[in-house]
Computed example of a mutant assay.
Amino acid sequence: MSEKRVTVTCADCNLSETFDSLGTAREFVEDHRTETGHEPTWQLPELAAGVQRAGDEAGVCGRPGCTDTDSPLYRGEE
């Protein structure tokens, strides 16, 4: 059995779930946002700091506060 690696939490309802895959966690986050209007967060402890920074700069998380629009990795608004 694989080790669970993605943790999703929601401060609004004290939710905490762990998932084996990023895709499943992402679906859960979107469903929770749609169903409750809450903004859950996730933690990916296995990613190296450089990978997390590159994802932030590219705008992967979708939050304006962590996106670096001056970065060559930034993909723009969809």
Results as ranks from 00 to 15, higher is better:
residue 32 H to Q: 06
residue 18 T to H: 08
residue 43 Q to D: 14
residue 7 T to E: 11
residue 54 A to K: 14
residue 71 S to H: 04
residue 55 G to L: 13
residue 6 V to W: 10
residue 27 E to D: 12
residue 8 V to K: 03
residue 19 F to T: 01
residue 16 S to M: 11
residue 33 R to K: 14
residue 12 D to V: 14
residue 76 G to L: 08
residue 65 G to C: 07
residue 51 V to T: 15
residue 44 L to W: 04
residue 44 L to A: 10
residue 45 P to D: 09
residue 37 G to R: 00
residue 55 G to A: 13
residue 73 L to D: 09
residue 35 E to L: 15
residue 35 E to S: 14
residue 47 L to C: 11
residue 19 F to Q: 02
residue 30 E to W: 12
residue 3 E to Q: 11
residue 19 F to E: 05
residue 44 L to T: 15
residue 26 R to T: 14
residue 19 F to R: 04
residue 25 A to Y: 06
residue 36 T to H: 10
residue 74 Y to V: 04
residue 16 S to I: 10
residue 18 T to G: 05
residue 76 G to I: 06
residue 63 R to K: 08
residue 13 C to W: 05
residue 8 V to A: 02
residue 21 S to T: 15
residue 6 V to M: 03
residue 64 P to H: 13
residue 16 S to T: 14
residue 17 E to K: 15
residue 48 A to C: 02
residue 17 E to D: 08
residue 22 L to Y: 15
residue 31 D to A: 06
residue 76 G to N: 02
residue 60 V to Q: 08
residue 19 F to I: 04
residue 58 A to G: 03
residue 72 P to H: 06
residue 47 L to W: 15
residue 20 D to M: 05
residue 49 A to L: 12
residue 47 L to A: 10
residue 6 V to Q: 02
residue 1 M to I: 02
residue 59 G to V: 03
residue 64 P to M: 05
residue 40 P to Q: 04
residue 10 C to Q: 03
residue 23 G to I: 09
residue 16 S to V: 11
residue 56 D to Y: 04
residue 44 L to P: 03
residue 74 Y to Q: 03
residue 45 P to E: 10
residue 71 S to C: 01
residue 74 Y to R: 05
residue 46 E to H: 07
residue 6 V to L: 03
residue 40 P to S: 04
residue 4 K to H: 08
residue 62 G to C: 08
residue 34 T to G: 04
residue 57 E to T: 00
residue 10 C to F: 08
residue 51 V to S: 13
residue 9 T to G: 04
residue 67 T to E: 03
residue 44 L to H: 07
residue 2 S to Q: 08
residue 53 R to Y: 07
residue 13 C to H: 11
residue 14 N to L: 09
residue 6 V to I: 15
residue 9 T to D: 01
residue 46 E to L: 00
residue 22 L to A: 12
residue 75 R to F: 09
residue 47 L to P: 11
residue 14 N to Y: 03
residue 78 E to Q: 11
residue 43 Q to C: 05
residue 45 P to N: 10
